[in-house]
């Protein structure tokens, strides 16, 4: 039954998300062909005034494009959850012979699959846009010095490229899952505001985000990641260790946040469904 639920959840999201990502990739190819492919080359004078303005516009365009695709993906995932569970469609979904927990699991898996695909396609799109032969050449040339900083060889255990890549992918995936669960929890909590369910969901989203940020700040302060000693110019400050500790803390907080919010949503789906 879970497989069937996931199939229908993916199917419902595919229509919009395939369109959005085909457009993203198409726009990226256009930008590469007509702009970055021409300017990110050996002969370009990067200090030239004629280069700076178009380059600035390009950066803005790229940020807008990628943010819009990421935002649209998250919106489609959240809307699918709301419509399928709490609007008219909920009258069918909630009378299927499956538990509320299974419905939530199905939607979480489907949402995370699309979240991960979105993340992958955003990276591919970024690479299409900036990965000109000139840029890849620059990266290869300077890889050794970049790597010696990133691999932290003299400041702790050495990281291999594969380990760093896995860490990056793992962090991205945790972020994707945390986002999907946060959206679902917000929508589910929003249902307790009669007559203003969507507004309730938006308010819940901001309240949860603010609460998580405040808790993060407190934990950072308690664990010594905030304070007078944390200053880039301070003698005792070690940037790589600071980043590593911050990343560890962010990952732990994300996992905890996800577990708590998933449990809350699960409880609502199992015990508190009220389609008034």
């Amino acid at each position: 039954m879970l497989g069937k639920l996931i199939k229908y959840d993916l199917k419902a999201m595919n229509r919009f998300l395939i369109m959005i990502h085909v457009f993203l990739l198409f726009a990226s190819v256009l930008i590469r062909v007509f702009f970055t492919g021409r300017v990110l080359t050996e002969g370009t004078d990067f200090n030239n005034e004629n280069f700076v303005l178009p380059f600035f516009l390009f950066v803005v365009l790229l940020i807008v494009l990628i943010s819009a695709a990421a935002f649209a993906t998250q919106l489609v995932i959240a809307i699918r959850f709301y419509k399928n569970i709490f609007s008219d469609e909920g009258y069918l979904t909630n009378t299927l012979p499956v538990t509320g927990g299974k419905l939530l699991l199905s939607k979480t898996i489907a949402g995370c699959i699309w979240g991960a695909v979105d993340m992958l396609l955003l990276h591919i799109s970024l690479w299409i846009v900036i990965g000109t032969p000139y840029v890849t050449g620059l990266i290869t040339e300077n890889m050794a010095s970049v790597w010696s900083e990133l691999s932290l060889t003299d400041k702790g255990p050495a990281l291999t490229f594969q380990a760093l890549l896995l860490l990056y992918i793992g962090t991205c995936l945790i972020g994707v899952i945390a986002n999907v669960v946060l959206f679902y929890a917000s929508v589910a909590i929003g249902q307790f505001v009669p007559g203003h369910k969507v507004l309730g969901a938006i308010a819940a989203y901001f309240v949860i985000n603010t609460a998580v940020s405040v808790i993060m700040l407190i934990v950072m302060a308690v664990s010594g990641l905030l304070g007078a000693s944390i200053h880039p110019l301070s003698a005792s400050f070690d940037f790589t260790i600071y980043i590593r500790n911050s990343l560890n803390l962010a990952i732990i907080c994300s996992i905890l946040q996800t577990l708590i919010l998933y449990s809350v949503t699960y409880w609502i789906m199992e015990k508190k469904i009220n389609l008034e």
Partner: peptide, 9 residues
């Protein structure tokens, strides 16, 4: 009807 169908608690 909704109570019979588990759509209300």
């Amino acid at each position: 009807i909704k109570l019979i169908n588990g759509l209300l608690i």
